[in-house]
């Protein structure tokens, strides 16, 4: 599904990613952990196509594509999804309008007809139930005035509607209380299948009790310094990151 080889990326001349290697197959869940500032969000944003980052080396293949050659919208249409660490507020654009537009763009890309209003409403209802999303949030402008938790839930809700092949959840757990965390994790677990894959970025192991990863990687100063199974997350929780230096 995704193969990252020796990826280097810089912002404003500072190299942040210093040779990332990672292979993800369909059906897998990978956790990426690491202290603040280690480059987790940078990796997520580079994969999503954020143009401020300069790719200084390496390659990324996503399905049959050279990912780095695709613009952000085509990456999304090919099935990549980033749940942002800091979702953006968009005044004046309603959540439901935004999602319907996004959904139809994907359908068009796949050569399908646009969905009509009634069918879209049904789809919304179904997905809202899954994430226990408040109906009132749908008619409000995207993320505007949402609480931290509501924003994160909205990200997962969008993911549920768009059904990506590869979803990157960037610190989705931060800002969520334990009940919300369980709901979100439960949603992810229902959505997972043998055809899709997840990268779960977090620096606490808390979330990983609910979304059980197949692999855990430690990102430190722009490099993956250790990889292992789900027990690695528990080790990190106990010992912190210092022992990896």
């Amino acid at each position: 599904m995704l193969e990252i080889k020796n990826l280097h990326a810089a912002i404003e001349g500072n190299e942040i990613l210093k040779g990332i290697n990672l292979k993800i197959n369909a059906g897998e869940i990978h956790a990426i952990m690491g202290p603040n500032g280690s480059g987790k969000s940078t990796l997520a944003n580079v994969l999503a196509g954020r143009e401020e980052y300069e790719i200084t080396g390496g390659s990324v293949r996503f399905k049959d594509n050279d990912l780095l050659e695709l613009n952000p919208e085509d990456r999304a249409r090919e099935g990549l999804f980033l749940a942002f660490q800091y979702p953006v507020e968009i005044p004046g654009v309603s959540n439901s309008y935004f999602l319907k537009t996004a959904y139809n763009e994907k359908r068009k890309y796949q050569g399908m007809e646009e969905i009509d209003a009634a069918d879209f409403l049904m789809l919304m209802k179904e997905k809202m139930k899954l994430i226990e999303m408040d109906q009132a949030l749908m008619n409000r402008p995207v993320n505007e005035g949402f609480s931290g938790g509501e924003k994160k839930r909205n990200e997962i809700f969008q993911m549920a509607v768009l059904e990506p092949k590869l979803a990157i959840l960037d610190e989705t757990d931060s800002g969520l209380d334990i009940d919300a965390l369980k709901i979100v994790a439960n949603g992810v677990n229902k959505l997972r299948s043998k055809d899709n894959a997840y990268i779960v970025v977090t620096h606490y192991q808390r979330l990983l009790a609910y979304i059980i990863p197949d692999f855990v990687h430690v990102l430190y100063k722009g490099k993956i310094v250790k990889s292992g199974g789900k027990e690695l997350a528990l080790d990190l929780e106990k010992k912190g990151y210092d022992w990896l230096k």
Partner: peptide, 18 residues
């Protein structure tokens, strides 16, 4: 707002439409 444009694009909406 460039962040908002990227957010929309990251959901499959073209740059022009965003």
């Amino acid at each position: 707002n460039q962040d908002a444009i990227f957010y929309l694009r990251s959901r499959g909406i073209t740059w022009q439409r965003a």
